[in-house]
Amino acid sequence: MESRTSLTQLLETLDEANGGKTIRLQDVVETFRSRGFGPLITLPALIALLPTGAIPGVPSLCGMFITLIAVQQLCGRRSPWLPKKLRERGVSHAKLHRAVAWARPWTQRIDKLLAQRLTILQQPAAHRLVAVIVMVLALGMIPLELLPFAAALPALAITILGLGMAADDGLLLLVGLLVTLGVAICAFWLW
């Protein structure tokens, strides 16, 4: 198995790459390019999963962004493309540095759990299937925004699936698919 850069190392690379400047979303895409679509699916899903997901409009925006990324994965793009307005959006290096410092203990824990395994689930056909599932979950976040914290259920499944893609961890993808099944059962039961 090839050695992969850890999530912590990727965040630290992003933090060190643009010392003192604004970090654009395009810089994030370029830093995470080796991880494919996983990080760009995981980050907005986390935003919707955390208490920030209770802010009106946040789950819908996250769901639309995730859908944009998942459609590109479904179409077979090798790396994500973002519209120019989105590519140029950014955050100050100071804010990013604080966020990386806050996230480091969490990413170090996550890095210990992730491994390249069940590689059969890392084939292009499997990633396209995951992209379809992620799109359905992300679009489902939009109407669920009307119910407090309801969008957190699909956001949890998307977060796990995104981490599985980012780490080439087929076992985590399998766990994400099981969580998705649980979300689907909950949705069916509520209707």
Rank of each mutant, 00 (worst) to 15 (best):
L40A: 06
K85N: 12
I55H: 04
H93F: 06
G38C: 09
M141T: 04
V132S: 10
I69L: 01
A131F: 07
L74K: 12
L129H: 04
A115M: 12
K112N: 08
I55R: 03
K112S: 12
G57A: 12
G90C: 06
L43Q: 03
G57V: 07
R117N: 15
D111N: 06
S34W: 00
R89Q: 13
I41P: 02
P105N: 04
I23M: 01
Q26K: 12
S92M: 02
G76W: 08
R87N: 03
P124Q: 08
G63D: 05
P83L: 12
Q73W: 00
R35L: 09
L118V: 10
T42W: 12
Q72T: 10
H97N: 12
W106G: 02
P39N: 08
I47H: 04
Q122H: 11
L86Y: 09
K85T: 11
K84G: 01
L144R: 06
W106T: 07
Q123R: 15
I110H: 00
E145M: 05
L74Y: 13
K84V: 13
W102N: 04
T52A: 15
K112R: 15
P56S: 13
I110Q: 02
L82D: 02
L96Q: 02
Q26N: 10
K85I: 13
R35K: 12
T42I: 03
Q26Y: 03
P56K: 10
A126V: 08
T31C: 15
R89F: 05
T67Y: 13
G63R: 02
H93Q: 11
L139E: 04
L121D: 02
Q116V: 15
I66S: 03
K112M: 11
C62P: 06
P124M: 09
W81M: 12
R109V: 05
I133E: 07
I120A: 15
L144Y: 08
A94V: 13
G53K: 06
S60C: 05
F32V: 04
V132P: 00
I47Y: 03
I142T: 08
P39L: 05
I120F: 14
P80N: 01
A54H: 00
R98H: 10
L68N: 11
L82A: 09
R24E: 13
L137I: 07
L139K: 06
L74I: 02
G140H: 08
T107P: 00
H93N: 10
A48Q: 02
R35W: 01
G57M: 07
A131Q: 02
G38E: 07
T42E: 11
L118E: 12
Q116N: 11
I69M: 01
Q73G: 14
